[in-house]
Computed example of a mutant assay.
Amino acid sequence: MATRAANKRLTREYATIQANPPPYIVAHPSENNILEWHYILTGPPNTPYVNGQYWGTLLFPPTYPFAPPSIRMHTPSGRFQPSTRLCLSISDFHPKSFNPAWEVSTILIGLMSFMTSDEMTTGSLGASDAERKWLAARSRWWNSTGGGSVKTPVKGNTATVKGVGAVKAGDGGVKFRAEWPELDEENWKWMTEHRIDAATGKILATPEGEIGNTSAACSPEVAALKRGPGGTTGLGDAGRAARDAGQSWVRRNKLLVVGMVVVGYVLMARLVGEGGAASS
């Protein structure tokens, strides 16, 4: 339970961040617990996270602002381990380095800065830019479906504080929906518009005879989903087979052909050598 000082401070900070939110950042306390804050970082331009929707939590101690919060990011990003406490100078890993003058906005700006850097710490991950762009494209789907564990929003479900530090794939997007109902509704509309399969996060094929949404098909998010996590176009076995079918047998078996030529040459050389020895 928050102390009177913590409650007063966090109430003031909520008013401040509502009136003047930092770029690409929104945040609010949970309705039932002012010590539990939820934030959304939108991936900034010129980064692998552009347009990604990154949801996470700040859990403040009752003694805030004289002690820092724990920081987690639930949405897979390729930068942080999902739902894992992050070791930062602004987090509860380093209480002695925390400055009581720092506010929620200061903490989240610091988190954004660290996310877009290459510095490593406890809870961070290494990944390629292509993988991070792919995860950014899937972020809205992941938040609203809990990683594909539900196909449609489950109305009437209410989330609890229990487990907020371990929100991972499988919760059906319940906690996200409880804290961000407007964003959740927007996400489902986006998935419908872009023909995203709620169960897998992949793009559904356009039905035969139906003209697809050209503007949606050209969006950066859809392009990243088509490329796949490794930055490739995601050809499966069928795709590779179709590709190989257009190539000659010789081109597809270069090593075998070379080996056959070498063996044939050696055999011919031996035969010629044995014929010369017999004639002499």
Rank of each mutant, 00 (worst) to 15 (best):
K226P: 04
L108Y: 00
G276Q: 09
W188H: 01
R4E: 08
T63G: 15
G170W: 06
I109P: 11
I17Q: 02
W141A: 02
T206W: 08
G212V: 10
L225V: 03
T145H: 00
T63Y: 05
R240M: 13
A5F: 10
A127I: 03
G78Q: 12
A205Y: 06
R4G: 07
S139C: 10
L111I: 08
P82W: 03
T192K: 09
N213W: 05
H74G: 13
G259Y: 04
F60L: 15
R243M: 11
S280K: 10
E13I: 07
P45L: 01
G146N: 03
F66R: 12
L255W: 02
L58D: 11
T206S: 11
S83R: 11
T42H: 09
T214W: 04
A217T: 12
G56Y: 01
A2Q: 09
T206I: 15
K226L: 12
D197A: 08
E13K: 04
V222L: 11
T106N: 15
P207Y: 01
G148A: 05
L86E: 10
S219G: 11
Y39C: 11
I196K: 00
P29G: 05
Y24F: 14
V161S: 13
Y265Q: 03
G56N: 07
P21H: 01
G239A: 05
R79W: 11
C218E: 06
A198Q: 02
T121G: 15
A166E: 14
W188D: 01
K151H: 01
M120D: 13
P207Q: 02
L10C: 13
T233D: 03
T145I: 03
S248D: 07
S77T: 15
V174P: 06
G201M: 00
A216G: 14
L225P: 11
K8I: 14
Q247L: 13
N143P: 02
P61W: 02
F66D: 15
S149I: 06
R85H: 09
M260K: 07
F176Q: 07
I109M: 11
Y54I: 08
R138D: 02
H38M: 04
Y54D: 07
G78K: 09
I211R: 09
L125C: 10
E210D: 08
D92Q: 08
L88S: 13
R195P: 12
A216V: 07
E119F: 11
P207T: 03
D171C: 05
D129C: 11
Q81G: 13
P95I: 01
A241W: 02
I34P: 10
S30G: 03
T42W: 03
V167S: 04
L108C: 09
T206D: 08
D92C: 08
G209K: 04
L10T: 12
Q53R: 10
A137V: 04
A169H: 01
I203N: 02
G275H: 06
A199F: 00
E119A: 15
S105Q: 07
A5H: 12
M112A: 15
T192M: 07
T57D: 06
V261M: 06
S91Q: 10
P23D: 14
L88W: 04
Y39Q: 08
P95Q: 05
A27R: 03
V261H: 00
V50P: 07
T232K: 01
A166Y: 08
E186V: 12
E179D: 08
P62L: 09
T214I: 15
V50E: 12
T152E: 06
N187T: 00
L271N: 10
A67H: 08
G52Y: 04
E185R: 05
A159K: 01
A27F: 02
G78N: 09
V258C: 09
E119Q: 15
Q81I: 15
Q247W: 02
